[in-house]
Amino acid sequence: MSLQVISIILGSLTIASALMVILSKHPVRSVIYLVVTFFFITSMYIMMNAQFLAIVNMIVYAGAIMVLFLFVLMLLNLNKEVEPVTNRGAQISALIAGGSLFLVLISALKETLILGQNYRTQDSSIGLVKELGNLLFSKYIVAFEITSILFIAAMVGAILLAKREKQIIE
């Protein structure tokens, strides 16, 4: 019972901070609200006893990606005058695109709601790093290795792009 109360509180806080990301006028504040949202998501993972996933979410999203976001935003000259003006057409198309994604997500999540009940009855060590490692290196080994190759390709591509740009400047 109390777990449910906690998860409802956490869920509403997550949604509130996620809403603040798009409602706040200032880009830097938006990023900070996004960091807060990631923290709430981390706490959700902890509630499901997925400790490894929780901490990786914190390191990768809150710790690395958002720092880069903040870094870029700080270097931009953010004044009211230079704020990009979006026209009505772009707003409407964004609304339609976002709304359809939302609908798809809802229909997908409806299925998982029933599946989601299972983790409580399962072994509590399921989210721990040992279980995860065993699964990744046995059942999902092909997918895991392909993902790592994709990551390496992306890294090499990023380095190449950065290098070429530098040569042009020089």
Binding site: V35, Q51, I55, V56, I59, A62, G63, V67, L70, V129
Partner: peptide, 21 residues
């Protein structure tokens, strides 16, 4: 916690926010 060292790194990685903000 069984991910103690990762927790430490998680805290280190968010430690930069104080200075940045």
């Amino acid at each position: 916690i069984n991910i103690g060292i990762l927790y430490v790194f998680g805290v280190i990685s968010i430690g930069v926010y104080g200075i940045m903000i």
